[in-house]
Write a protein that binds this DNA or RNA. Structure first.
Lengths: 230, 230
DNA sequence: TCAAAAGTGTTCGCTATACACCCATGG
DNA sequence: CCATGGGTGTATAGCGAACACTTTTGA
């Protein structure tokens, strides 16, 4: 029997952070899941997460989990909801503060954890542990809403990318189709892109222009207030 | 010395819910604050809040606090952020899950609590207890963002209202000015309003048309996806 | 008589959207 | 030779934004 030495006059819940890690494979939006090695829900897939420590904020905890799982620091990460269902963990009352992160799949190293980790396209995610099915739905909603206010999509692409890649990313996130010419015109008019005057030879020997995100212009646009319309 | 009978193998934080209650007085957006009667921050203003109980969700806790303070049930309430700063409460580690609610000031009854409660225009809020200054800023940001996706403003107006009242509300929330004719045209074209074919005599004996929010049309519009552009 | 507030339509410019052809490559 | 995918420009319709005068009342 473990020793229970932290005592309070009133019951306290456990607090965890969970991290929905999004990646883009060039065609589809993916999430990184880990397979649970212990009960409850042993063998089921879940989002990486863990207990918040008493000397760190939830954000710091989420970043710690993210780095343990991917080796990445300094990635885009955002709190989107706290899940507080009374029965969401069968062991004890656990609330979780959930974050989503946007990473480049190619930069992800295998996690420190022994736990098996795997990317799943968001349309092919199996039934998850705990209430993580709900967490995924809410994360997607939050991502789709946030993309109207911040050009966060760039966090999912390599530094240099083609217009078609960018379009496919927006189509994958928002679940819609755009006209190639209109998408390109709108994006270029926004002024968020730097044309690198450089071409890449694609698999089919076609040559495509490369662009990169222009953070300076973004900061300027944000200052005077703007919205991404899609 | 109080008895500490709830014990855990690892330290657990306290979890509270706080509720930013917005009301509209016809001209300005207001928040309801309560004066703290005990230390810490005794005598300072703060948002109503309290400890989450082990058999209720954070949302249920926030609704309970809201009803205790205003007598109101079934109001619009939305979780917007969890605040987890390590030092945000000097007594012990406390995280708070924060909600904002939209109420009609005229329907608010004095709270059950002995605590003094008072409405403050958002531009005249004094320095608040804990990190509640930050909570207010985040609540306002969240409200302003959410209003682009949901016509939540109606929750702050009486059932019947004039176009000018509605315009003043949007101006107060978003901090901008609109042209009367353009605002009216846009609103009517959206189809969210029912024209009551009824007039009200204002204080200056002018006659103004009355409208009400049309939830059926809203449900229909939401179904096929729409955005409020302001 | 002056200020404040409500009712009412039109014009202009911009932007969103729809749309087609050429070219190079690989199969 | 056909399918795929990238590059490029225009025309139209609808929307956003700017804008003025009249009327009534209270101060």
């Amino acid at each position: 029997m473990e020793e229970k030495k932290y005592c309070y006059a009133y019951p306290h819940p456990s607090v965890t952070t969970d991290c929905v890690i999004f990646g883009f494979d060039g065609t589809k939006l993916n999430v990184l899941l880990v397979e649970r090695g212990v009960e409850p829900y042993k063998g089921r897939w879940a989002f990486p997460g863990g207990f918040m420590k008493m000397n760190e904020t939830a954000l710091e905890g989420a970043k710690r989990e993210l780095e343990e799982e991917t080796g990445l620091k300094d990635v885009y990460i955002k709190q989107f909801h706290a899940f507080t269902g009374v029965e969401r963990d069968p062991r004890e009352r656990v609330i979780t503060i959930a974050y989503y992160a946007l990473v480049r799949i190619s930069e992800v190293k295998g996690g420190d954890d022994a736990a098996k980790a795997e990317w799943f396209p968001i349309n092919s995610v199996p039934s998850l542990a705990f209430d993580h099915d709900l967490i995924l739905r809410e994360a997607l909603d939050a991502l789709r809403r946030q993309i109207h206010f911040e050009p966060i999509g760039f966090q999912l692409l390599p530094e240099k990318f083609t217009m078609t890649q960018l379009q496919h990313l927006y189509e994958a996130i928002l679940g819609v189709k755009f006209d190639r010419r209109n998408f390109s015109n709108k994006m270029l008019k926004l002024g968020l892109l730097t044309d690198l005057d450089e071409r890449i030879t694609l698999v089919n020997k076609k040559e495509a222009f490369l662009y990169k995100f222009n953070p300076e212009n973004y900061a300027f646009l944000k200052e005077k207030g703007f919205r991404l319309e899609f």
